[in-house]
Simulated assay, not measured.
Amino acid sequence: MTTLSTPPLSPKDTLDYGHRFDANRRWEASLTLGFAAYPERDTSITRMNVARHYGPLRVQRAFYPEGRNGCCHIYLLHPPGGLASGDSLNIAVSVDKNAHTLLTTPAANKLYRADSNGVAWTQHTHLKVAEDAVLEWLPQETLAFDGSRGQQMVIIDLAETAKCLGWEIIGLGRPASDLPYVSGIIEQHFQLTQNGRPLWLERQVIDPTHPRFAGKWGQGGATVHATLWAVGLSDPEATISELRDKIAPNHNWAVTYRRGVLLLRYLGMERNEAWDLLQQAREILRPRLIGVKSVTPRIWLT
């Protein structure tokens, strides 16, 4: 099975890599965010107390559409709008005790075709959630162009009483332009731990030349994948029953619960169908997870 690797950095300035066009091309961007709960009258308010960035990756401000004592909404901004060969995005988020944060993006992320040297891109996300804190990780979808090569990694470290609700959606090719994903390779990793104990470890390689890509025993030719996770549910069995009862039956999705992690999966051909499914699931899950109804981030409506 084909895997990807990224050339190690040398002591040279990263800018030198960004202006190269050979196999050593590298352009880095990083964002480190921290959130803490601060006392305010009879309750507390979540504020962003750390915001460090390097390169074209940043945030502008915090939003409070659920009230000042509600969830702190943050929009992750990446002005280039996508990843090209050599790009390296690193996102680190830390949510302290009793804080509640929602992170999303203003638009779909694009994974562009690799250059003539086949240089890969990388995107690493590390989410850390402390005791009694809540993190919602809800980026808009990722769209992979034909020929894209790269590696995505999502690492989630939870404390014992932390709660997390998140999703990842990827669409392959550009069907509206009749440009399917027929070449390239994308390697995805998910790692979720609680108090250092691994609860969900997963690796998949999206390779259109592998028999699994088209085989009915594997991906079956599906061009859209979506995974939603929830950790911290008090009644997972009732939650799964409600999901199955309230979401229209569809052979493209299924839900399971193991080792304290609820996983809802979509495998199909319609990006909008996957997006609608996850939003419906969130409307059910959020009240059960944190006792607050689902609020749509304003950026999704623009």
Rank of each mutant, 00 (worst) to 15 (best):
K12Y: 12
D13L: 13
T14S: 10
L15C: 10
R20N: 08
F21D: 15
N24S: 10
E28K: 08
E28S: 12
L33G: 00
G34K: 00
F35Q: 04
R41E: 15
T46V: 10
T46D: 13
H53R: 15
Q60I: 10
Y64L: 13
Y64N: 05
E66T: 01
C72S: 05
L76V: 15
H78Y: 01
G82M: 07
S94I: 00
D96F: 00
N98P: 04
T104Q: 08
A108M: 09
K110G: 03
K110H: 09
S116G: 04
N117A: 08
T122R: 05
V134M: 08
Q140N: 09
Q140G: 07
E141S: 07
L143S: 04
D146L: 03
Q152N: 09
Q152V: 12
C164M: 13
L165T: 04
E168Q: 12
G171C: 11
R174T: 07
P175R: 01
S177T: 10
P180T: 10
I186A: 02
L192D: 00
Q194R: 15
G196R: 11
P198D: 01
L201M: 09
E202V: 05
E202P: 03
V205L: 09
P208W: 03
K216E: 14
K216R: 12
G220T: 03
T227C: 12
A230Y: 00
A230R: 01
S234Y: 06
D235E: 15
P236R: 03
S241L: 14
W253R: 02
V255Q: 11
T256N: 13
V261N: 10
R265D: 08
Y266D: 08
N272M: 13
E273Q: 15
W275N: 08
L278T: 00
Q279S: 13
Q279Y: 11
R286D: 03
W300M: 14
T302Y: 11
